[in-house]
Design a protein around this nucleic acid. Structure first.
Lengths: 358, 358
DNA sequence: CCCACATATGACAACGTTTACCGTCGTCCT
DNA sequence: AGGACGACGGTAAACGTTGTCATATGTGGG
């Protein structure tokens, strides 16, 4: 094999070039190189030109560790989440990445299992990552002791759809109660009354919030939730599939299913078909999130659109902006920008829901 | 809002503690602190104890930039890919993350659009990321000029399922021709002859390789591929959906569809149903990858299992190992380990394929 | 008692940048 | 002619850690 580290000619080992080499080649001082490459003032157009040419010639790239050391910044932003669906994760990442594009910051992904159960271990992981700031997706965003540790360590954070302590850090919020109410109302308006509910992971605060929305919708429609038709999943397809099958065996069999995310809704569709029934003719199914599976499922899912990418972009934007802002020059406007951002949800009606057949 | 950077008491601004603070508190020199925390020798048990206590007391975490500067390593591994399906990306990431867990290395994700068309821009992005090594997924792994640049910059890389220049860098390979042949043979063995083919992105070398496998299967079965039943997608659901509909309008209508990845296979299932037909009764559909959608689809997809997570783990493992290995102490065994790893594929037969109806 | 030796510890330099301070030279303005 | 200003270079310090080397301390053998 040919491998770069061992493919040296054998005699001369060429180092990576430093700022000194560039300075020599361009015939200027290292300070001038620094200024020229950073587009700082006090450099003539001519010198700037020569420096950039020399840098290109030598394939020079500044040593980021050295820059970080002096700037007291790592230019690393973390993104943390836990065992969620692939399409949610990717959207989350893409939002952050989109914002970081063309900036000096890089994105470090830090998924973690059982954040709620191992907060100390997770905190250590975070600190060892040497981040400038971190974006917390559920359920980490609601982990009180984690926030405490971040505050202690002075590590700025942005939270995506938290439900508790809404005044801590940068917050991207969505009214999940209203959203839950909207999707439940949709099924009720179609005439459904025997509605099965597939809860998400109880450790996520979102599960309770969405449930509260369902409750309000039922109350508003003068209907009651049948406790016998509630099952608990964990936001994954597999568990969702298992509990959906269980749900369909109960009597009276539901004519519709409310799943607390799209993955479990798709699992519910599969379970319905496993029983030899059709969606939406025999059983309607609605999800939550409007992640990619909602569109690739057949029939396409009725669901709640959650602007994950937008929230992630915004969270990252405010995080970066706060890092770049001089604490001295803060006025009230800036402070409020670094506070809370609210995002709209939207009920998306597609083919997976219809009036009950009988 | 309460935000850590501005929530100082107002008078005393507490800095993050450094090694000096720990040294003072423990009553030893900074050198001893360094040795104690790194579990290096030449430190008495007593001193080590005091240092660790002091470090814990002060919430001390070493500055990674300083460590990187002197170690000439950033402890960052990059992962690059392009607009692929969420489940593929997540599996790729998880493989790398699994290997990096409990190591000092962190994972930086570097997706990029149109790598083939903007190699220089992408190269700059890579260099600016200050990585120690990089894992290249398709199609970047087959980008010759990119590999040249990485060699020039002495940045070690590992390639996942490349198809060209198999002797460059660390390679995790899979026989995609044989895999293509296996899935095509499966349909042919069921009795299908009018088989539609949905190609992947022509810029990915995998597309041609899989197609070559299909060709061999047809030749082996004494059948010929109908050029009229070949359409080209780009591995995404949306385009796959559009071209699958087109495919189904052609005459004679295919009785089976070979899609070059699972996302497009799921899109084909949707297209078949859009025509009022059923899978697999009227049209069989087979995919490639065995990504998560293959199991969450209904019926579940017949596909080729590609051990993406395993390949990603292995690629990362060899990359890290090569970084940690002293170039001097390399023997032949080590060198061959840093070369190529071959991974098996597997035909997974599920509900989306059946014999033709008529 | 002194020498050899191991182990503990500290002083100092190094890593590659940016920044601060000071000084020189030229140019343009009045 | 005098002064203000911009473009540099020189020198040195700073960022926070680890590597090198010399020194201090203790231990046992002769």
């Amino acid at each position: 094999m040919t491998w770069c580290r061992y493919s040296f000619g054998g005699s001369v080992i060429s180092k990576r070039s430093t700022i000194v080499d560039v300075a020599n080649l361009a015939g200027v001082s290292i300070k001038t190189v620094s200024r020229a490459l950073n587009d700082a003032p006090h450099v003539s157009a001519d010198a700037r030109e020569r420096v950039k040419a020399a840098a290109a010639e030598l394939d020079y790239h500044p040593n980021i560790a050295a820059q970080s050391l002096i700037a007291r910044r790592s230019f690393l932003i973390g993104l943390t989440y836990e065992r969620p669906s692939p399409s949610y994760v990717v959207e989350l990442q893409n939002g952050a990445l989109l914002r970081l594009e063309d900036s000096r910051y890089r994105l470090v992904v830090l998924p973690f299992r059982d954040i709620a159960k191992r907060p100390v271990e997770f905190g250590r992981l975070l600190m060892r990552a040497g981040l400038d700031g971190i974006v917390l997706a559920p359920p980490a965003c609601d982990q009180d002791d984690l926030l405490d540790m971040l505050d202690r360590q002075k590590l700025p954070y942005a939270r995506i759809t938290p439900h508790l302590n809404m005044d801590r850090g940068i917050v991207m919020a969505m009214d999940e109660v209203a959203a839950g109410q909207a999707v439940a109302s949709h099924l009720l308006a179609l005439g459904h009354r025997r509605i099965g509910i597939i809860m998400g992971d109880p450790l996520h605060a979102a599960s309770a919030a969405r449930m509260e929305g369902y409750r309000r919708a039922f109350a508003e429609a003068g209907a009651t939730i049948d406790g016998n038709l509630i099952v608990t999943g964990d936001f994954t397809f597999d568990v969702g599939h298992a509990v959906a099958r269980e749900l369909l065996r109960r009597t009276p069999q539901p004519t519709a299913i409310l799943a607390q995310n799209d993955d479990m809704a798709v699992a519910a569709i599969a379970a319905v078909r496993d029983c030899g029934l059709s969606v939406p003719e025999d059983v309607s199914v609605a999800g939550f999130d409007d992640s990619e599976v909602a569109r690739t499922a057949w029939p396409q899912l009725t669901t709640i659109r959650q602007p994950v990418l937008q929230m992630s972009w915004d969270a990252t934007d405010r995080l970066i902006t706060s890092l770049e802002t001089d604490p001295e020059s803060l006025d009230e406007n800036a402070l409020s920008y670094f506070g809370r951002g609210d995002h709209p949800h939207e009920l998306v009606v597609r083919g997976s829901t219809a009036p009950p057949s009988a």
